[in-house]
Structures are given as structure tokens and as C-alpha cells.
Amino acid sequence: MLKINNLYTIAEDDNDKKILNGLNLEINPGEIHVIMGPNGSGKSTLANTILNNPRYIVTQGNIEFEGKDITNMRTNEIAKLGIFMSFQTPEEIPGITLAHFLKSTKKSITGEKQSIVELSKEISDNMNKLDMNKSYLNRDFNVGFSGGEKKKNEILQMLTYNPKLVILDETDSGLDVDAIKTVVKGISLYKNDNNAVLIITHSTKMLEGLKIDKVHVLVNGKIVETGDISLANYIDQNGYKKYLGDNHEN
């Protein structure tokens, strides 16, 4: 489904700093992958590069999705192919209600004309599943939402668009235990044999209750080890010392 081949990127606004250094990754339908790594290892860059954020420039390698090279595709076209990213810091859009946002973006992403009644019901069902207060629909998008509400809103969008591949960029950061449980519930509801999930995280809290296929450790822009859930548990206990050498702390 997703195939990343020998990917190198630089950050344009950060003195062309090299971030990803020959990264390879393959995710198949039905799988859940996890990427862990210390701060600054390139986790968020990977997520943003898959969506072709103009801040990051691919200098070598490519990204394929369902056999198509998407490396230089526009972000909105990538989204329309069925790749969704849950942002680490979701944006606020003043003056645009959540309801308006969901309706116009759903149409943009799927290109389908869905009846307002049908879509409203779908949104309402999804909000129930995520314990979200319906009054939020009439509030400005993410304006005045708590950190947890913003992340739930990302999951609500995920359920509403029903993409093929979901990238969760530190969705658990800053969330309390209950909110993390809700997010995990959302992922479980979404997940089936035909779609895939890439979870970027610092901890194993978000992995409980999910069937994890592969865990990758990302260090200095490269995947240095791949394993099963036991690798995540190891890192949870021991950190990244093993990968960083003596002069690094974590």
C-alpha cells in the first residue's frame, strides 16, 4: 500500500538541515505500524513528507502509494487518494464552524455529493462514538478547544473521511488516560483488513488494545531496528540509549 524507498529530506526553512537519511518503509493493507524515536529523529518530518508539506524537500528516494509515485504530488491530491494525517498540533480556523468544515472537506476529499442529512447523521454517530459534545459542531473549528478535544476532532475527521491509510502524528501527546482510550477506540472502529495505520508515538500507552504488526525505531532519519510489540515495550522501559551512543541522553 505505502512504500517508501531510500528517502532523504531536508528542511527548507532550517538551513537545509538534513532530516531523513535513507528511510525505507513498507506498509500493507490491514497492518498497523508504529514508529518510535527520540526527539528530532525525524518522526514528524516523515509524516509531513508523506503528505508533501512544502516545508520539507525530498532530495533522494521516493514515496509510492498503491503503486503510484506520490513524492511530488500536491497535498490535496494525496489526501484524495486516501491518506489522512492526524496532526500533532491541529490548526484553528476562526469563523468556520466544525460542521461547515466537516461538510466542505468531506466533499473535497471524496469528491462525492453526499446528502446533508446523511452526512449529518454520519457525523453525529461518529461524535457519539468519541464522546464528543454535539454543541461543538456550531463552534469555530478548534477555537477554544482543549488539547484533548482537538485530538478527538482529528479522530472524528478520520472516521468521517474513512481514508485508506491513516498517519497519527503523536496523537497521544498531552492527552489524559481517558482521552487516549477514546482515541484508541476510534482507531479500533476505523481499522479493517483493507486499511492501514501508521502510529507515531513516544510511548506505548496508545498501543494497548491494538494489534500491532510492526514497530520501527527511527534514529537520525533512518530506521535502525524493526520488531514486534516487544520492541516498543523495551523502549518504554529503556529508552533509546542503545541506539544513540555515549554522548547522547534521552
Binding site: 500536491r74 497535498t75 490535496n76 489526501a79 494525517m85 490548526e91 480556523i93 471524496t110 473521511y161
Partner: peptide
């Protein structure tokens, strides 16, 4: 970028 990731041009 956020809105483009939601399918908007």
C-alpha cells in the same frame, strides 16, 4: 497545509 491535507486546493 492543514486544509490541503483535508482535500482542499
Amino acid at each position: 497545509f492543514y486544509l490541503m491535507s483535508r482535500g482542499m486546493s
